[in-house]
Simulated scan of single mutants.
Amino acid sequence: MDVEIIIAVVAVVFFIVGIYINKKSLNSEPFPESEINFQKIEALELSSREYEVLTEIAKGLSNKEIGDKLFLSESTIKTHVSNLLVKLNAKRRTQAIQIAKEMHII
């Protein structure tokens, strides 16, 4: 009986810690609006659709997932990604995200 009580107390403690961590992570905003450099977005001549695709890439979505979310074909998403890579002077999607973060556009 004592062991069961100890296990129950440990489970409740882990449950409470899990809720605390989850609430803390939900409150943190991945892309704070106040730090986004909109002038740089305009200087790079990113279209609004390209910027949407860039933010979805930053969330880790694939081309198919982005297409489903934005109601576009996968080939259209590939075109937007290609344009983003050229405009950001990047070779890969991950490099494009890194450059965009350094420029404070996401």
Rank of each mutant, 00 (worst) to 15 (best):
L88I: 03
N27E: 14
V10R: 09
K59G: 03
E35L: 10
V12K: 07
K78F: 07
E65V: 02
Y20W: 15
L46M: 05
L54S: 07
P32L: 06
F15N: 00
A43E: 14
N83R: 11
F15P: 00
S47K: 02
L61R: 15
S75Y: 05
S34C: 05
I97G: 07
L54R: 13
I19G: 06
A8F: 00
L44P: 15
E56T: 04
G60F: 03
Q95D: 06
F14Y: 09
I41K: 09
L72W: 00
V9M: 01
A90W: 01
V10H: 07
I41V: 15
D68N: 09
L26Y: 07
V12Y: 12
E45G: 12
P30H: 07
V53M: 10
K101L: 15
S28W: 02
L88E: 01
K78H: 13
K101G: 08
K87E: 01
V13Q: 01
V13T: 10
I57A: 07
I41A: 08
F38H: 12
S62L: 06
S28N: 15
A90M: 00
S47R: 05
A100L: 07
E45V: 12
K59R: 13
I21C: 12
H80Y: 08
I77A: 07
V10W: 05
S25L: 13
N89H: 02
R92G: 02
F31T: 08
F38N: 09
L46P: 12
N89G: 08
F15M: 05
E4A: 09
F15T: 05
S47W: 04
I5D: 00
S82F: 00
E4V: 03
L84E: 01
E74R: 08
N37K: 05
I66R: 04
N63L: 02
N22F: 05
N27D: 13
S75A: 12
S34Q: 13
T55H: 10
V17D: 06
Q39H: 04
I77E: 01
V12C: 12
G67T: 06
F14W: 04
K69Y: 11
L54C: 07
I99C: 02
E35M: 15
S73L: 08
F38I: 09
R92W: 00
E33A: 11
N22C: 10
L72V: 04
G60P: 02
E74K: 06
I19P: 09
V9D: 02
L61N: 15
E4D: 13
E4M: 02
V81H: 05
T94K: 13
I66Y: 13
T79F: 01
S47L: 05
S34L: 09
